[in-house]
């Protein structure tokens, strides 16, 4: 197995681990964490693709940077929703 194949397989494994855990977990914060793990898997695949050739691929790296920022924003929104979901009943009324 070459380094490229090893690391690509690692990315896929992390993605699958994250997705399966996300689908099976019931605790909402753990589901958010698992989603972030899955996203890390995709980022690994993209960045490993960027190492092909002599120089690292700046475009693939830029894509990953964008992906990380988007995931951070989505995590923030998800956690705000988690808190709203878990707020006691009486606080729901606007």
């Amino acid at each position: 197995m070459t380094r490229l194949e090893l690391l690509l397989a690692l990315g896929c494994a992390v993605l699958v681990v994250g997705l399966v855990a996300h689908l099976l977990a019931r605790d909402l914060v753990r589901r958010v964490v698992a989603l972030n793990v899955a996203s890390a898997g995709v980022m690994i695949v993209l960045l490993v693709l960027a190492t092909r050739g002599t120089e690292p691929d700046p475009v693939a790296q830029a894509l990953v940077l964008t992906g990380i920022v988007i995931m951070a924003a989505i995590t923030g929104l998800a956690l705000a929703l988690v808190r709203r979901v878990e707020a006691p009943e009486d606080e729901e009324a606007p």
Binding site: L15, R31, L35, A38, V42, L77
Partner: peptide, 12 residues
């Protein structure tokens, strides 16, 4: 939240 989860999995 459920919608967000599904949509983000789809995106990934």
């Amino acid at each position: 939240l459920r919608y967000l989860f599904v949509a983000v999995v789809g995106s990934l």
